[in-house]
Nucleic acid binder design. Sequence first.
DNA 1: AAGCGCTTGTGAACGTATGCACAAAGTTGC
DNA 2: GCAACTTTGTGCATACGTTCACAAGCGCTT
Lengths: 261, 261
Amino acid sequence: MTRPRPARLVRSERATRDGIPEATVSRLPFYLQALTALAERGVATVSSEELATAAGVGSAKLRKDLSHLGSYGTRGVGYEVQYLIYQISRELGLTQDWKVVIVGIGNLGHALANYGGFTSRGFTVAALVDADARVVGETVAGLTVTGLDSLDQTVSSLGIQIGVVATPGPAAQEICDRLVAAGVTGVLNFAPCVLTVPDGVMVRRVDLATELQILAFHEQRRAAGRLAGEMPAEPQDLSEALGAIGEPRTTLTKSRAEAAG
Amino acid sequence: MTRPRPARLVRSERATRDGIPEATVSRLPFYLQALTALAERGVATVSSEELATAAGVGSAKLRKDLSHLGSYGTRGVGYEVQYLIYQISRELGLTQDWKVVIVGIGNLGHALANYGGFTSRGFTVAALVDADARVVGETVAGLTVTGLDSLDQTVSSLGIQIGVVATPGPAAQEICDRLVAAGVTGVLNFAPCVLTVPDGVMVRRVDLATELQILAFHEQRRAAGRLAGEMPAEPQDLSEALGAIGEPRTTLTKSRAEAAG
DNA sequence: AAGCGCTTGTGAACGTATGCACAAAGTTGC
DNA sequence: GCAACTTTGTGCATACGTTCACAAGCGCTT
Ligand SMILES: NC(=O)c1ccc[n+]([C@@H]2O[C@H](COP(=O)([O-])OP(=O)(O)OC[C@H]3O[C@@H](n4cnc5c(N)ncnc54)[C@H](O)[C@@H]3O)[C@@H](O)[C@H]2O)c1
Ligand SMILES: NC(=O)c1ccc[n+]([C@@H]2O[C@H](COP(=O)([O-])OP(=O)(O)OC[C@H]3O[C@@H](n4cnc5c(N)ncnc54)[C@H](O)[C@@H]3O)[C@@H](O)[C@H]2O)c1
């Protein structure tokens, strides 16, 4: 009954219902945030052009992204802010509150626990866990940090679905395994390592050093371009290169210098 | 009619020298980190298969990525760990140390400043800046936090190239403008907002809420699939929906319920 | 030096994502 | 009620990214 659907045009493109492209999913949070900001300013409707600007994307991309959710929006007018907020929230699964456990209450864990941005966007930090006896018992953001022993118990009894790993790298995999065993199916990993999980569990990794390195790549490229306008692709030296980073060249069966000369 | 068409794909692929695909660049840090871990364990050579596993990607993808840097690696053997570390480091611009300023020494800023992972991977935190008089003067990770006034001075005199924005959202754009004016050409933004910068400056955004929301999307999809095996795409209700998230429906020129009925 | 087994590097096929451009569908004004 | 105007939704072309599969190349053994 409640069907705003135009009836014809049943499955013209990708199945609108199930198959939302991953690239689109990764942008929906940005749209949602831009829309929330607009809503707070009392804006009732917004065009794709305006919303796209606010979210930092092109308007065509925005429209195509939104078209995957359905035909919300009115031609000649734009999108109703509140309605679109609801639709995106629903698509992202934010109509329910997700419970999160943070493991590793060090520098980063403290910051995360104190961060208000989680709570206000559909997530509840339900538990804090750390291995260090000096940290256990401490109260952070209204929660008492519990010990590692309680992890499995806590996760399963509270029905926690998402785990945030903020421990040092070496401990991350073990923590992750225990989280998964206790019922977590989504993991946000801050440790600089790869986490292996069974099928059906998703890991997303956030690595600050990675981000900086990507920035550095572009910095360098820019600097190179600025210095030497149009260089004909120098074949990079390498003699002192290994010395600069690697160590004194242990088992180089075939030294690269050989190949170069 | 729009274009005469390039006739043939003449250049077999992208120019190997300059044009490294963005997707590849974003994975190089992972390879680098995996290689570093191997090096610390004393491994001298590694095959694409092993390295791919360690980095959490497929081996074909890894080989194609590396092939963009050049033909390092020996058929029948694999890649020399140290040599590859150097090549990737060089490509990422990590043979020089990049200077970083962190602006906004709150919860997150403190954690970032204390984080050892920056320093060990080619970056030097050269300055800490905050607007709050209670924070200014404090010593964090061996650096004294300075006031906002000193920002421009500090950035330009120290030759800082990268800025990390860890202030609340509303202040982020202004800080960013000042950083760019002072000479920063790369910005890592933790504030949940879009930063506008002139051409030639790159911004990367890290948003934890976004990451969690993407996790939530997949959680939800999984849950939906588990509950209802093969649902024929229910057309979502919406009557109480607006009430659940939006407010009492202010200026809905055309309520969706109307269109439905 | 010739053969064998192993692994790289890459062409080719496929799939996904982006951006353009415009018809369709709505609103506004008369 | 109709025409002019605005903005969405999407077909289409192109660009980008991933995966497969295998010939070329290398080291080791004989
Ligand atoms: N601080 C940052 O800004 C930052 C940035 C990027 C990544 N990281 C990564 O995040 C992780 C945490 O960083 P940090 O700066 O908070 O480190 P930290 O040393 O300050 O905190 C780590 C915490 O984890 C706890 N811990 C150790 N082993 C544990 C285990 N087995 N189970 C539970 N808890 C355990 C420790 O007791 C400590 O409280 C590290 O992997 C780091 O590389 C940190
Ligand atoms: N804490 C987290 O885990 C976390 C996670 C994701 C994103 N963020 C984002 O990072 C930012 C900082 O988060 P936080 O938790 O550290 O907040 P916070 O309030 O603890 O710290 C903000 C700091 O910025 C300073 N500041 C405010 N205005 C400033 C200005 N104009 N110039 C310089 N400094 C200024 C404040 O004095 C304060 O020290 C926020 O935008 C937040 O949304 C934080």
